[in-house]
């Protein structure tokens, strides 16, 4: 089993802590002038996104986690699982459960590429692209010519997400959205 010593710690490193896959977020070196050195480490549990803080004696090792982020295309859902396919030409498919899909369920769009995080080969997290183009399926009628007042209204997108859009947007239009902030960015260029 691969291990990492404290002197290899850096943010982004994927490690196994209490059997859970974690990513190091922050690593601080602490050492009294005449004393033992320590590493104070902030870790994010990749499954739950919860942050942990741990202290290690410098020189200690922890196990590496077999974690991989791969690009996969969303295919369909059978109600229980969400199916994705590798984009490397292998056509290999993977089924992610509800826990792995999480909030990304709001952004799922067929043939769009998502980042799937695999832990020991099984999907644990599905991350949407930062920007995605989706069709508006439900919103109040657009106010013509109103492009300057900065008002907004809720709009339901084809993936199910509800976001705030400017007043001039109509049903049937395709818009660009930031999936992290849920902000409307622009009309899609068609």
């Amino acid at each position: 089993m691969a291990t990492y010593s404290t002197n290899e710690f850096k943010s982004g490193l994927k490690v196994l802590l209490d059997g859970e896959p974690c990513a190091i977020v922050e690593n601080e070196f602490v050492k009294p002038g005449k004393g033992q050195a320590f590493n104070r480490v902030k870790l994010k549990n990749l499954k739950t996104a919860r942050t942990w803080e741990r202290t290690f004696k410098s020189g200690e090792s922890i196990e590496a986690a077999d974690v991989m982020d791969i690009e996969m295309e969303y295919l369909y859902s059978d109600g229980e699982f969400w199916h994705f396919m590798k984009t490397d030409g292998s056509f290999e498919q993977i089924a992610a459960d509800k826990a792995a899909v999480g909030d990304t369920i709001d952004w799922l769009k067929e043939q769009e590429a998502f980042e799937v995080t695999l832990f020991n080969g099984a999907p644990i997290v599905v991350t949407p692209p930062n920007h995605i183009e989706l069709e508006v399926v439900e919103t109040d009628p657009g106010v013509k010519g109103d492009t300057a007042t900065g008002g907004s209204k809720p709009a339901k997108l084809s993936s199910g997400a509800v976001v705030k859009v400017p007043l001039f947007i109509n049903e049937g239009e395709v818009i660009r959205v930031d999936t992290r902030s849920r902000d409307y960015l622009s009309r899609a260029k068609s």
Binding site: V30, K31, P32, G35, Q36, F38, R40, T55, K57
Partner: peptide
């Protein structure tokens, strides 16, 4: 498995 001084150093510095 920390020694007495490991513990004292940890508590002192953190």
């Amino acid at each position: 498995d920390w020694t007495r001084d490991d513990c004292l150093d940890a508590l002192m510095s953190m």
